[in-house]
Design a protein around this nucleic acid. Structure first.
Length: 200
DNA sequence: GCTCCGATTATCT
DNA sequence: GATAATCGGAGCG
C-alpha cells in the first residue's frame, strides 16, 4: 500500500515547494524509467526566467493548464526539454526535469543516446533526459497519470536537497531555484549563461 | 575536470 | 533579425 503521495495532491502546491519534493520520483515512458535527481522551478508569470512571463502563447499554453501535465518545448534548434506543470490552478508554473538516473530500460536508453560515454550521461541534462526517455513534441500536454508516460512520486521525501542558481539563464539568474540530490553522478555541473561576445 | 565554439530552427520582437 | 531553460567535441590541465 503506497503512502498518500498521490501525484495530483503533490503537484497542487506552489512550485517552490513542489520542486524539491519531486526529487527521487520516477518518470517512466514505456520501458525506460528515470529516477529524477535534478530539477528547476519556474514560478509563474512573475518569474522573468519563465517562458510564461509574457503571457500565454501557443508554445507555453500547457503551462497555463491543469497540474500533472507535461510541458515539452523545443530549443536551440535541436533539443527537447520537459517540465511537469504544477499548481495552484491558473498560475503557469512548472518544474523543469534536468537530470535523472536510468533505472529501467537501460538497453533502449543506451541505443537512443549513442554519444553517451557512460551510463551516468544517459539522462544528464534536460535534453539528454528527454532523448533517453523518447520524449518529443508529441508528448507535449500529456497527462502524467496515463500510461505509458507517467510520473510516480517518491515514497520518502529526500532529506538532503541542495539548491543553487538555475542553469543557462540570463534573466533572474540570481534566484536559487535549482534543486538536486547530492552525490548523484547524473547531476549537471553548473553552467552560467554567458553573454557571448561577438566581434572586436 | 575546465573553456571555447559550432550545430540548427522555433519562437518572439 | 536575435535569441535560446543545450550538447558534444576539441584542446588543455
Amino acid at each position: 500500500m503506497p503512502p498518500s503521495t498521490d501525484l495530483r495532491d503533490l503537484l497542487a502546491g506552489a512550485v517552490l515547494a513542489v520542486a524539491p519534493r519531486l526529487l527521487g520520483s520516477v518518470l517512466r515512458h514505456g520501458e525506460v524509467a528515470c529516477r529524477i535527481t535534478e530539477v528547476e522551478a519556474y514560478d509563474g508569470a512573475r518569474d522573468p526566467g519563465s517562458h510564461a512571463n509574457r503571457g500565454e502563447t501557443a508554445r507555453n499554453a500547457v503551462m497555463f493548464g491543469p497540474p500533472g501535465h507535461l510541458y515539452v518545448y523545443f530549443t536551440y534548434g535541436m533539443h527537447y526539454c520537459c517540465n511537469v506543470v504544477c499548481g495552484p490552478p491558473g498560475s503557469p508554473s512548472a518544474v523543469l526535469v534536468r537530470a535523472g538516473e536510468v533505472v529501467d530500460g537501460l538497453d533502449l536508453a543506451r541505443a537512443r543516446r549513442t554519444p553517451a560515454r557512460s551510463d551516468r550521461d544517459l539522462a544528464r541534462g534536460p535534453a539528454n533526459l528527454c532523448q533517453a526517455l523518447g520524449i518529443e513534441a508529441k508528448q507535449n500536454g500529456h497527462d502524467l497519470t496515463r500510461p505509458p508516460l507517467t510520473m510516480t512520486p517518491p515514497e520518502l521525501l529526500a532529506d538532503d536537497v541542495r539548491t543553487g542558481p538555475r542553469v543557462g539563464l540570463r534573466l533572474a539568474a540570481d534566484r536559487p531555484w535549482r534543486f538536486w540530490l547530492p552525490k548523484e553522478p547524473s547531476v549537471s555541473t553548473y553552467r552560467p549563461a554567458v553573454s557571448r561576445r561577438r566581434g572586436p
